[in-house]
Design a protein around this nucleic acid. Sequence first.
DNA 1: CCGGAAGCATTAGATCTATTTATCCAAAAT
DNA 2: ATTTTGGATAAATAGATCTAATGCTTCCGG
Lengths: 320, 320
Amino acid sequence: MLPDFNRLKLFYHVYARRSVAGAARDLHVTQSAVSQGLAKLEEELETPLFTRVHKGIVPTPAAESLFSMVKPFVEALERELRSFAASKKQPWGVLRVGSPRMFGKIYMLRVFASFREKYPEVSFVLELGGQEKLLNMVRAGDLDFTFSDIFFAEKADLSGLRDFAVEPVIEEEVILACSTQYYEERIRGDHSLKHLLTLDYLAFRPDQLILRGWFKHHFKRQAPRLNISLTVDNIQAVIAAIDEHMGLGVIASHLAWEQISRGDITAVHTNKPPISNTISLVQLANKVPSLTEKVFLRHFHKSMAAMEMHKDFFKLWPQP
Amino acid sequence: MLPDFNRLKLFYHVYARRSVAGAARDLHVTQSAVSQGLAKLEEELETPLFTRVHKGIVPTPAAESLFSMVKPFVEALERELRSFAASKKQPWGVLRVGSPRMFGKIYMLRVFASFREKYPEVSFVLELGGQEKLLNMVRAGDLDFTFSDIFFAEKADLSGLRDFAVEPVIEEEVILACSTQYYEERIRGDHSLKHLLTLDYLAFRPDQLILRGWFKHHFKRQAPRLNISLTVDNIQAVIAAIDEHMGLGVIASHLAWEQISRGDITAVHTNKPPISNTISLVQLANKVPSLTEKVFLRHFHKSMAAMEMHKDFFKLWPQP
DNA sequence: CCGGAAGCATTAGATCTATTTATCCAAAAT
DNA sequence: ATTTTGGATAAATAGATCTAATGCTTCCGG
């Protein structure tokens, strides 16, 4: 069906130089090789590409139109090759990373911004979404890597993780919290399941997965219907709702650290340690990371390390 | 420098199928061949194109951007191949023909029009101009063929005609003519060189080549300065000027045949036969004509044959 | 007019490389 | 446990590509 592509490369040189011998020089082969190759191409295409004249060759219309498609290809290819080479010397190009919504909005955007200050040649595609979707995108090559939290995930399809390399990058303490005022009015130390079920809840996303997760972890049973006073897909909005005394929400403690230290927000502990939400970097195990990727991940880890210095502050539990 | 093009073709299939084994099936080779070829391509580019996962491969960003340039090329190539095949079954595409201005405007446009009635898939590029320019364009492959008149050419570079095939297609009788009224008033049978030099002339193009040619032919000497009353590059305008009694112009007799038969225009003969201007079809000798070309030239010759039926009417000379 | 030189085609033989055959490995499906 | 699937690797081979040599034709310089 398609002709031999190397002969098209040969044709490209012959046409560009309008000369068999010239192309031979360009390609560092003998004139005979070019002559034979060209003849074979014409045979393959069943179309004469050049009419032979005394000392030289003259392209036919077929050659012109063939060249008009080979030329842009060769040129694009050369550009491509140069960009491959360039991105081996310095970070360059697009980095496509996935992240859980919360983590992405809070951390990643900041890291991207600071990275781009140093490497403006690198741009980012940030894909926010559920872990399953993100992992599938990594598996399909649509993302270079993704961040993923194990807890928030429903049933981590651990069997399918064979191909992935998973590296924990940060641990969050997941707490159920409300405003101190709400706590004083409605809870006053009664952390029993029965009592908690009478209160108002703030759901992060309609599936209430996170709330259910909290109850499952702390009471070993599926949470029954909860009074949902607000559903919203933005964790900052959940915290704002807590501030407004609208009820209880599950958040990462450090996200509301200021309010907690000031005493505006209070966590509801049980006798079990709080959920530890590990956020991990997930990528294909055998992937050879590009320079861009390596430099970015080094930058990312540095940023995380800087935050880890506050790590102790983020721990509410064990209670004093 | 550039990678092996056949491996790019291989890459195209591997990427399209996201599978080494799949590409092997497409290409009718073994899985091993594809695996090795792909490995070599990655080596050539010094860039991993796929990361190997358990049962399969996942494209890297480099593969994506490479594919984004290979894909349009392959598709364009397939289209091209189809159009090559199509134009072997029926006339198709563009025919680029050269012609002397006069001949082109008078004859060629008509022939094109009638051809396109039958083969609307064929379009034309008509290049009007001097013979040297047109021959060079044929030599360079910019025209498929050209029509050329030998007489009107200055010094036909006959040495350089080795590569051309020349085939006469029509003979014109070239005459010096004026309006009968002008003839009666200013010439009255005195066709001597001396007398003729006192008259007014109409030049077709500023170089006066044609007028000079007429004098050289009939009096065996270079024509001295002539009174040029009008210079114009359109032969119809020359005839119109003759009609308006502005002077003498050199034209092909058949172009003013009606006026001549009506007695409105008179030719100035000498004792030598008039110039015979042979218009020939010129093309590269070794060229294999495309189907389009063959069909068109057959059509052209038929049209010419139809005109040749009037051939006798076009002869003014020998005078009765 | 004659002997290079330039440009391409052609042939036969040498070289190279793309492909196959065969084997292996790991995970998934049966 | 066994088979199946997708891929990697090593060695052998078949086939394509390239070179060397030669011929052909035209142009050019002496």
